[in-house]
Amino acid sequence: MLYAIFCYNQEDVTTAWSPEHDARIMTDLKKVEDRLSAAGRLGPVARLLPTTAATTLRKGDTPLVIDGPFAETREQLLGFYVVDCPDLDGALEVARDLAVANPGLGAYEIRPLQIFRPGGDVGSLG
């Protein structure tokens, strides 16, 4: 079974970390990643930019673009894509295509990545 693990923390605290502290945490996390990777168990790893860099496309007849992260608690996180786009407009275009393919309720939150390691250790599923 493949598991996704989502990382939650207080952004006002983490964005105020000193560069040294941030680097130390990243190094310690990397050690855990390396252990998993050596065992052939690690898939993609990503660190997201702060929610202040997020934009949300709310699905609907005319999809609505909203500044900020997805904040609705009635809907749950069900999946994610990582897509290479030249800029925010490019990412919104992809989100609009997804909304056409899967219309109805819900939203797509667009968050630029700060760190991304694709990780080829694990095979595909589904």
Binding site: A53, T55, D67, L88, D89, P112, L113, Q114, I115
Partner: peptide
């Protein structure tokens, strides 16, 4: 990393 965040924010602003 700062550049990536700065560019993401200016993209958002210009919209």
């Amino acid at each position: 990393q700062m550049i990536a965040e700065g560019l993401a924010l200016i993209d958002k602003a210009l919209r």
